[in-house]
Design a protein around this nucleic acid. Structure first.
Lengths: 226, 226
DNA sequence: GTATTCTATCTGGTATACAAGATCCGCCGA
DNA sequence: TCGGCGGATCTTGTATACCAGATAGAATAC
């Protein structure tokens, strides 16, 4: 959490907010981590007022929550919330693809470039960047499909997914995600919407299954330790 | 705006936030309306601090926006944003219906009761309540389909739709909306998902068309007045 | 009479002050 | 040695103070 700050100027509350989202996406901060107003204020060189503004917005997006007089904490979704988040994302992404207009050549190129970046991060073993890019791809996709509102919603949902993955999932296969993204872009380029939807659906089902597996493990270890 | 307050106790920022959403849904406050921190503070009996917290969250949900040193204003979506909002809602609602699990009898009953309430508000000509219930039905629907996260997202989107309708749409036919809701619930009860999706899609297309019509009027009057 | 500039006032932007609950740690007693 | 009690300390909750930008209106210049 000490490395959140990047520039030397005092930051606005918007900057704080997006830095924290970015930090979650890059797995720099983990579910359950405490984010003290005082600490953050010192890190970003501002008073608690601006920190609180950022936290307020982050809490309204379901990224952090406050425990009265104890502090702000990055949320730790319960299994139920995790399921709902995955289902919500499935609804949004499938709906997004189904309502797809024709996607421009430029956009396809941009998405392909993004996938290449992902591959590079994987090859260079840049873990934070890798996590960030793999999540951010879906935001990019929504933006490419021409809807900034859905892009916003997906940013919220993918951020939560990263938290969920950190909690319940065995390390996701980054390479497989990246491959899926590549196949998705390919399908979109030749306008095979059906296939794109299938890929997306499979991707999310995979996520959900991983969640189930991990959950069963939790239950098991719970029983063993009692 | 003077009637926002309901209870006599000083309100928390959460209460302020939900009261304002409710007020927008009931068309008590209109797009473009100014919401001064000082005024709201006096209305709710709290300092500007709490008002600001509420505004911060509302702005993160795209309901209000701040104009620096001038004040907070209920957003007036541009035509482009209106389109994106309608499309976003289409994606979310269709995705929601497609991923539907079996819906319980209790939930169907609850939705039917909600529709009856809508009808009553229409019959009694209770305009605010009518607007509120017609919008809130979709939130209820998402909740009934078991996803509180999507319900939250839909609350945000329907609130914006009310603002859009106030700006661009000729008075929507409330009776028709209510009838659509009834048909939707009927389709869900006998598990005709396909039909439910069709009804929903038509509903939103109708919205979008109304937007187009009104837009052409705008353009026309713009040309005439220049 | 009109346009312009200046100033009084109002608004949000940010920091700080102070209140009150939560926590931690040392002390005391059994 | 262990458990409960009490206060010191730390944290957020809320109000307030003060600053600076925006606005409106009066006074002024033309």
């Amino acid at each position: 959490m000490e490395d959140l700050k990047k520039s030397m100027q005092p930051a606005s509350s918007n900057i704080i907010e997006s830095r924290i989202i970015q930090a979650v996406l890059s797995e720099e901060i983990s579910p359950g981590e405490r984010l003290g107003e005082k600490d953050l204020g010192e890190i970003f060189g501002v008073s608690r007022t601006l920190v609180r503004e950022a936290m307020m917005r982050l809490s309204s997006r379901g990224i952090v929550a406050v425990s009265p007089r104890r502090g702000w904490f990055v949320i730790e979704p319960t299994v139920e919330e995790a399921r709902e988040t995955i289902e919500a994302r499935r609804s949004v992404e499938i709906g997004l693809l189904m309502n797809q207009k024709i996607i421009s050549v430029d956009m396809i190129k941009q998405l392909e470039a993004h996938v290449l970046e992902q591959q590079r991060a994987i090859d260079e073993n840049d873990l934070g960047r890798r996590s960030y890019l793999l999540g951010h791809f879906h935001v990019q996709l929504a933006a490419a499909l021409g809807n900034s509102i859905l892009a916003n919603i997906l940013e919220e949902l993918t951020t939560r997914i990263v938290l969920i993955a950190a909690l319940y999932q065995s390390k996701a296969d980054a390479q497989q995600s990246c491959d899926n993204h590549r196949r998705l872009v390919n399908a979109l380029r030749v306008n095979k919407v059906e296939e794109a939807i299938k890929i997306m659906d499979a991707h999310l089902t995979y996520l959900d299954k991983a969640l189930n597996t991990r959950l069963r493990k939790h239950e098991l270890s719970g029983k063993l330790s009692n």
